[in-house]
Write a protein that binds this DNA or RNA. Structure first.
Lengths: 129, 129
DNA sequence: TCCTTATTGATAACCTTTACTATTAAGTAA
DNA sequence: TTACTTAATAGTAAAGGTTATCAATAAGGA
């Protein structure tokens, strides 16, 4: 069960890097389908998840909305607008070893954490007026 | 547009309190449908969200899995098992004003944060062997 | 060049949640 | 109590994002 290199996976990776930040699977698909019109959406999903497992890209799961995919960079946190659902990067020090602040793990094996701030983005604040 | 008290909402609230922690909408529905066999699932969803808005219960959004509903208690964090999807309480000090650690808000209006640890629960660790 | 099988394209299915709509019933006022 | 207004309900369909299925294709090694 060895991993094969396909042009589809290369194109998906390219598209994520081109979109830079917080692209949805559908946005990636729209880019890729331009050059490779008969690519399947399932292929895009499969490769996005594979690339995330391989550590080439980052997967940001957003409850209620579509998951986002980032080009791989440093660990960082996100903020989600409760009005429009968009996801933004947050400029804040990443908390290493946050797991150590847990008093009793009860045998749970921790492997990381997600921190998502909530609020209203500047754009949606304008609209409210 | 005033809010009316219905037996359905009371039953939904009762069920969440009975289940104590991290109940899914479907689990709540299963409890309620016992006593009130013709209740609609839509009614359960509608009331769970209303109760969450009213602050009577807490809604925990879980990406990929069904949302969970807690009886109202103190702010706390959660851990999700990557194998079985179950959600657990984490014994750790809640970080008040975590938003103040953000260097530049870029006009974003923060209203809170969710912190979700990831890992493998004791039960799923056993199964792996 | 052949062979094995991982990957693809196309489509259906999945699962949670929301939308729709005629009907029911909660609260208010007569 | 009775009548009235309309919020809430039951039942169902549909949305939305993602995964499953499977025959056909093609990547990489022999």
């Amino acid at each position: 069960m060895m991993k094969r290199n396909t042009i589809q996976r290369a194109m998906v990776l390219d598209a994520v890097n081109k979109l830079k930040c917080h692209a949805t699977a559908d946005e990636v698909y729209q880019i890729v389908v331009n050059e490779h019109p008969n690519i399947s959406k399932g292929t895009v999903y499969r490769n996005l998840n594979q690339l995330a497992e391989m550590g080439e890209i980052r997967k940001i799961e957003v409850p209620g909305n579509a998951d986002r995919f980032d080009h791989r960079c440093h660990d960082h946190y996100h903020a989600r607008c409760l009005k429009c659902g968009k996801v933004f990067d947050v400029e804040m020090e990443y908390i290493q070893n946050l797991e150590k602040q847990i008093k009793d793990s009860h045998g749970f094996q921790f492997s990381g954490h997600d921190l998502m701030f909530k609020g209203v983005c500047p754009n949606c604040q304008k609209k409210e007026k």
